[in-house]
Design a protein around this nucleic acid. Sequence first.
RNA 1: GGGCGCGUAGCUCAGUUGGUUAGAGCGUUCGCUUGACGUGCGAAAGGUCACAGGUCCGAAUCCUGUCGCGCCCACCA
Length: 731
Amino acid sequence: MSFSSVYEPQKEEKKIYKLWEKSGLFNPDNLKKAKKSYCIIMPPTNANGNLHIGHALGMGIEDIMIRYHRLKGEKTLWLPGTDHAGFETQVVFEKHLEKEGKSRFDMKREDFYKAVWDFTQTNRKGIRDQIKKLGASCDWSREKFTLDKDIIKIVYDTFKKLYADGLIYRGERIVNYCTKHRTAFSDLEVNHILRQDKLFYVKYEFKNEPGKFITVATTRPETIPGDVAIAVNPKDERYKKLIGDYVIEPITQREIPIIADILVEIEFGTGALKITPAHAADDFEIGQRHHLEIRKTLDTNGRFNELSGPLVGLKVNEAREKAIEILNQNNALEKIEDYEHQVGVCYKCGNVIEPMLMEQWFIALKKPIASKQNKSLSDLALSAIKTGQVKIYPKRFEKVYFHWLKNIHDWNISRQIWWGIPIPVYYCQEIKNEVCQKSKGIIISDKEIKKCPYCSSINLIKDQDTFDTWFSSGQWPFATLKTQKNKKDFQAFYPTGTMETGYDILFFWVARMVMLGLYATDQVPFKDVYLHGLVRDQSHQKISKSKGNVIDPLDMITKYGSDALRIGLIINNAPGNDLVLSEDKIKGYRNFANKIWNASRFTMMNLGSDFQPKKFDIKYIKTPSDKKIIKQLKDTIKKTTVMMDSYRFYQAGDVLYHFFWHKFCDQYIESAKKQMTDSKKIEATKQVLYHVLSQNLIILHPFMPFVTEAVWQSFKNKKQSILMAQNWPKP
RNA sequence: GGGCGCGUAGCUCAGUUGGUUAGAGCGUUCGCUUGACGUGCGAAAGGUCACAGGUCCGAAUCCUGUCGCGCCCACCA
C-alpha cells in the first residue's frame, strides 16, 4: 500500500471493504468465542429506490455500535435486509408506469406483481452496493427480504395465532379510505391538516308540519342522501319534544326520524346532528346503537352511487357543489358560515380521506389476552417500556410512546393493493353446516384450497387484499433470526441489543415490533431503542424526493470519502434531534481523515523499517510530553468508553477528534520531533508514538473505519491482521 | 383539543446528575509554514446562553410565566 501525501478515499475504500468481506469477520460464526453476544437487526431498507442521506446516518450509527461491540470481543451480528414496502413500492412503481403512459389497471394482477418483483430485486442489488460503500460491516450471508418464503410463513403463523386467540377479526367498520389510491389505511397513514371550509346550515322539514324545520350544521352536504336520522342530545331542552318525529331529508326526500343520543354536543352548531352511518365514525356508532339502516352512497371508486339520487356519478367535490345547488333550489339552506377545521388527508397524495364503511381485517389492541395475564397487545407494549425491559434513547420519546399507546384504536391491517403479502383467507360462500357457520365461513389457509374444509362447498372466494407492510416488518426481529440456516441464531441473538431507527417511525414500526415480538416470542425484540433525527437541508426542509432536495450520500462519498460523510452526520448530532446537513462540515472531516493518514505516515517514516513494536511499558515514558500524552490517552479511552456505552456517539466522536488532532498531532508529534533528535530518547519515543497511534486507530475505527483500517494495513507486521478485529483498550 | 421539543458566537450545533475565564466545526481577521498534512501551524475577534421572575453560596442547566419557532397525536358534525 503506497503512502501518498494525501489520503485518497476512493482509492482505498473498495479494497478495504473487500478485505473485510474476505476476512469473514462480519459473520459472528467466525469470531472468537465470547460470553456476550450483540445483535442489531438492520431496519429493512425499502426496495423501491436508492439509499438517501437518512440511511447514511442510520447505517453510520449502527455500524459504530457494531464495530464497537466487535472490538470489545462480543459475538456481534448485524443482520441486513430489505423490505418489499407494499404500498410505498406500489406507489413508486405506478409512477414509473405513469411515465410510460401506463397504469396498473391496464395490467393483469399477476403481471403487475411480477413486474414489481423484478423492480425490487434490481433495487436490492443497488442497495447492497450502496450499503457497502457506507462501510457497513453487516453479515451478508444472513440477509433477508420481507417476501422470502420463510419470512412469509412466519407472518402467516403469527396471523393464525392472533386469529386463534381472537385478536384478529374481520369487521365492517369505518375506515380511512383514499379514493385516489383506492385502499384503506390505518390511522397512522392519515395526516390532519387545518383547512378553511364552509359550515352549511341545512333545514329538514317536518313530515307532519310542513313549513316547520329542524336545522342541522354540516360540512358535508353531499352525504345528505346517506342520512338515516337526525340526532339530538336527550338533555337538550330545545329538541326534547321533537324526539320521535320524522323529517324529510332534503335531497332525496326520504323520511328520517329524530333520535336522541348523548354523543351529540348541545353547544356545537345547532345541537342537531345528521346521522350518516356509512360515512362518519361517530354516526356509525350512533347508528349501531339505534339499529339504524346503513346507506353507503359513496363507492370505492370515489363516486356517488344511485342511492344518492341526483348526485349519482359525481366525485365528492362535484357532489358537494351539486348538493348545495339542490338545497338552494329547495330552499333548504338556511345559511353558510366560514369554518376552520382539521381534515384527514392521505399521507401520500394529500387527497381527503373518506371515512368509509368497509369490511377489513383488524387487530384488537385493547383486548385482554388470556395467555398473557389478560394484558392486551398495547398493555404488553406499554409495560415493556415501563419496566425498563426496553429503553428508548432519548428518553423523552418514552412519553410520546405512552401517549400514543394509551389512546390507540384497533389496527386495520388489510390493504386493497396488489403488491404485498396476500391475506391468507378464503370465504365460503355457501356455509352449509353449523361448523362452517360458527367460523362465519372464514377459512385461514396459506395454501391454495378448492373446497371449504368445514362444509365442503366449492364456492370459495379468496381474499383479494394484502397486509399492511408494517404487519410483516413488525415481526422482523424474530422473523429474521428464526429463519436463518444457523438454527442457533434465535437463541444466540434474541432479544437483540439495539434497534436503531428514525423517530418518525416510532409508532409505525417500533411500537408494533414490541407488541408483536412480545406476543409471538414472549420476549422483547430488543433491549434498547436508539432514535436518530431527520436530516434536513440548508433551509431546514425535510429531505424528500417530492421536494427535489435529495442529497445523494454516494455523491458525498465520492467527493469526501465514506468516513467523512459518516462522522459529518454523527458528531454533535444528539439522538432524536434533526440535523441540518452541511457539506462544509463533511469537508472538515475529510480533512480529519487526511490528518489521520498523515500523522500515520509521519509515524511510519520515523519508526523506520526495522522498528519492532513492544508491549507498552511505563519505562518508555521519558519526558513530560510522553507522560502527558499517555495520561491523555488513558483519559480519552475512559471517557469515550463511557460515552459509547451510553449511546453518546455524537460526543465520543468529538472527543476522539480532539484528542487525535490537537493533543496527539499538534502537541505530541511536535514534541516527538525534538525528542527523536536525542539518541537517548529515540527508541522510547518511537514506542510511545506507535502505542498512542495504534490505540488511536482502534478507538477511532468505529467512527472512521476505512482510513483507520487503511493505515493499519500499511503498518501491519505479520502478527496483526485486521484492525476491525483488534481489542478495544481497557479503560 | 391533547402532547413533545426548541430558542447558546455570522451559520450549523454540543454542553447528563447546577460548580472555576460557556465549547466545536465552518466562516472572518492577523501572522507563520519548501519536507507528516497543497486539506498544515499559531493567534485573535465574536455570546447580557429568547425574555421576566423564582430556588440556591452558585443557573445556559432546576421551577413558574411571557414571547417566538417546530414537531407529533386526535373519528366532534
